[in-house]
Simulated assay, not measured.
Amino acid sequence: MEEDPGDQLVAAHQQELRRGTVVLACLLVLDEPRYGYALLRTLADAGLDVEANTLYPLLRRLEAQGLLESDWNTEESRPRKFYRITGSGARVRDALEAERLRLHAALAALSRPSRPEDRSP
């Protein structure tokens, strides 16, 4: 069975849409320190499936930007790097969340079927 070229376009646009969403999701969740695998599970439990090879570079990038900080926990049998949001990260998170809510409202308004009285003559 041949793949519809439209499917590739949809997949590409979905990936683009998800990129910023994953950043915001991480910033929303990391008020409490979490290690990478626990974060993957938390996101998946919320319905946001992210692959490890996407998440770990993202966490490193957010840390380099000063939005996250990390500490190694070596007290357990297996050392784990725990990430948590910084003050700058919280400010970025709040701004992104406000923008997400604004965009959601705008898209919801655009997706409603228009009523005849709303149409211009």
Rank of each mutant, 00 (worst) to 15 (best):
M1R: 13
M1W: 11
M1N: 08
D4G: 09
L9D: 08
V10P: 04
V10A: 15
A11I: 07
A12K: 10
R19S: 15
V22K: 01
V23W: 01
L24W: 03
L27V: 09
L27K: 01
L28Y: 02
V29Q: 09
D31V: 15
Y35H: 12
G36K: 02
G36T: 07
Y37R: 14
L40R: 08
R41M: 05
L43V: 03
A46Y: 09
G47E: 12
G47A: 10
V50S: 03
V50M: 02
V50Q: 00
E51A: 02
N53M: 07
N53E: 13
N53G: 04
L58G: 04
R60N: 06
E63C: 15
A64R: 08
G66F: 11
L67E: 01
L68C: 05
S70Q: 04
T74K: 05
E76A: 02
S77F: 01
R78D: 01
P79Q: 07
K81A: 04
Y83N: 02
R84V: 00
I85R: 10
T86Q: 08
G87W: 05
A90C: 14
A90D: 13
R91N: 10
R91W: 00
V92S: 07
V92H: 11
V92Y: 07
R93A: 07
L96I: 03
L96F: 13
R100H: 09
R100Y: 06
L101K: 15
L101P: 03
A108F: 07
P113W: 05
P113I: 03
R115G: 01
P116L: 12
S120Y: 06
